[in-house]
Design a protein around this nucleic acid. Structure first.
Length: 103
DNA sequence: CGCTTGACACCGT
DNA sequence: AACGGTGCCAAGC
């Protein structure tokens, strides 16, 4: 189990309708490598399996999903979030702290 | 082996 | 409140 896989496993554990943060994931694996977590998700070889769109920055914002990267799928991911019950407004999650999933 | 690069976070202006 | 510098850790080159 390398670092990346660890990240993916944790992401998969995030229940539907909940979100998490890079920091939490880092803490969950006894590390402060929240940056490396970002790299793992950015690669994301398990595209549909790993719900990388449920991982946000500490402010509860979609960082690099909808504005910076121009993947069309990412647009759908926001829709997917809404469908799961996570309200997204201007790339920010409403009631983020309430929906935050801790490991 | 060492320098650079990030889907970040924290703290000081 | 917004912005910028610094620290963090793993990967790539």
């Amino acid at each position: 189990m390398n670092f990346y896989d660890e990240v993916y496993e944790l992401c998969k554990k995030i229940p539907k309708g909940k979100v998490s943060t890079y920091k939490e994931i880092g803490k969950a694996m006894n590390s402060r490598a929240y940056r490396a977590v970002g790299q793992a998700l950015r690669n994301n070889p398990y595209a549909p399996i790993v719900p990388c769109h449920r991982v946000l920055n500490s402010k509860g914002e979609l960082y690099g999903f909808n504005g910076k990267m121009n993947n069309k799928n990412l647009k759908d991911k926001e829709k997917l979030l809404l469908k799961e019950g996570v309200k997204v407004k201007n790339n920010k999650v409403i009631d983020f702290e309430k929906k935050l999933f801790k490991f």
